Simulated assay, not measured.
Amino acid sequence: MQLKTRITGAMTALALSLAVPAAAQEATAQVDLAQIAPAALRQDLLKGVYGAVEIPGRNQLWVASSPSFEQGTPGFVDILDATDLRPLRRIELPRRAFALALDAARGRAYVGNTLDGSLTVLDAASGLVLDTIQLGKPDGEGFEHTRMVRVDPGSGQVFVTSPSDTGTLWIVDPDRQGAVQRIDDAGLWSAGLALDAARGRVYATGGGISEVLVVDAATGAGIGSFSTGDTKEAGGEASAHFFVNAALDTEGKRLFAADANQGALYVFDTETGAVIATAPTGLGTLDVIYSDKRDQIFVTYRGVSREAPSGSGGIVVLDASDYARIADIPLPAHPNSLVLAESGDALFVTVKAPMEKEHPLYREGGGDSVLRFDLDKLATLLPRQ
């Protein structure tokens, strides 16, 4: 393995030459929503939705929400029926809720309290709050932020990223009363997180010169880093990329990284760290998930930027064998998080309503959405390439 090898400019140029041509990608028209309606269900009862997680043994989808950013306001976990999205129960939390992860073996759910820099630990059966684990240090009037949360299904270790200018990765050990290991200098804006439990590897993704940090899951030791080679100087202003979220194809040894800066998907070889493909995905690219059952990649894009604040986003579906675009599904206004059902037969998406009153789709008091796609039905309705 050559995990410690950084990608040279020549290797990057070669890798980018393997990417699907942008013109071919952009030629794929957006799907008419009426065309795929038989494969979709939508629930609009919630406000401030963010992450979600499936509880497969209970046929439930848990959705984290924070209706207000004001300090001291509560967060919520709304429990929906995973088949028809009926609301089943609401759990109020003492801190604002953004990310979600499940430890099925131990019956625990972890809620990332992003703005409070902590984790809320819930009993996955009763919904009772078991603990609050403070991770972030005080930072001004608040705390260092947490972001993505992942759980090793075997060890129960919990991994949490912090997208700061230096980057932090926390590892929480539930078998030692929630003991926390802190790894600093995890990389500029270390926001994204992917876990290969079988190989004992954690991938923290962000920006900077080396955009991906590889960590030994058992010890927390750094193993190496991946770099596109596109950023030559340190600091956020010089960063060509921001890999805000990541997903893995463990069998194919590929890391899929959603690049918010470039509006593209980057594919890394996890053996060598080389960029093996890129594919344009859309303005404000955000989340990515891989279906090994279908060999497809799903990517959300918000459709907006600071320079273009009035757009609307969707989901891009890519063929993971050649990175060709299968479809672009518009989902007004801002698709956010993706969850793939354990069966591989359903895809859940949280979609945020615009918060800015100037946005053409803004509605006073409007709610956010949760969508469920039946992927078998969707496959029959999408255009054939």
Rank of each mutant, 00 (worst) to 15 (best):
L130A: 10
I223P: 13
V63W: 03
A194T: 02
A238W: 09
A246H: 01
L80Y: 03
L286M: 12
V202N: 09
S126W: 00
A99Q: 15
I276Y: 08
N113Y: 01
Y266G: 06
L213G: 14
P56A: 08
S66K: 13
D292Y: 11
D84V: 04
L93E: 07
W189R: 09
L130N: 10
G192P: 02
Q385D: 15
G48N: 09
K137L: 11
V149W: 01
A37H: 08
L41W: 01
V202W: 06
T272L: 00
T250A: 00
A179R: 12
S343C: 05
R302M: 13
L193N: 10
V212C: 02
T205R: 11
D368T: 04
A124Q: 06
F298V: 07
Q71F: 14
R96E: 10
Y323Q: 11
A39I: 06
P94K: 03
F98N: 13
P21I: 06
G224C: 07
I7D: 15
L255W: 08
L88N: 13
S210D: 15
D78A: 11
L361W: 04
V121T: 04
V317M: 04
T132A: 10
G72L: 06
P332D: 14
V158I: 06
E271K: 09
Q71I: 14
A109R: 09
P56K: 05
K47Q: 14
A277W: 00
G252K: 05
L14F: 12
G207C: 03
V288P: 10
F256M: 08
A52M: 14
A333I: 13
D259K: 01
E26H: 15
D44K: 05
R306P: 11
F348I: 05
L119W: 04
A379R: 09
Q181T: 09
A257S: 03
I91G: 02
R182N: 10
D84A: 07
Y110S: 06
D44W: 01
V304P: 01
Q181M: 11
S225I: 04
Q262D: 13
S321G: 14
I7M: 14
Y203Q: 07
E271T: 12
V172I: 01
G229P: 05
Q35G: 06
K352M: 12
Q134M: 08
L286K: 10
K377C: 10
D123I: 04
V121C: 00
V349Q: 03
F159G: 03
A179M: 06
F243A: 04
Q71P: 11
R199V: 04
L286E: 15
L338R: 06
F243K: 03
V215T: 05
P87D: 10
Y301V: 02
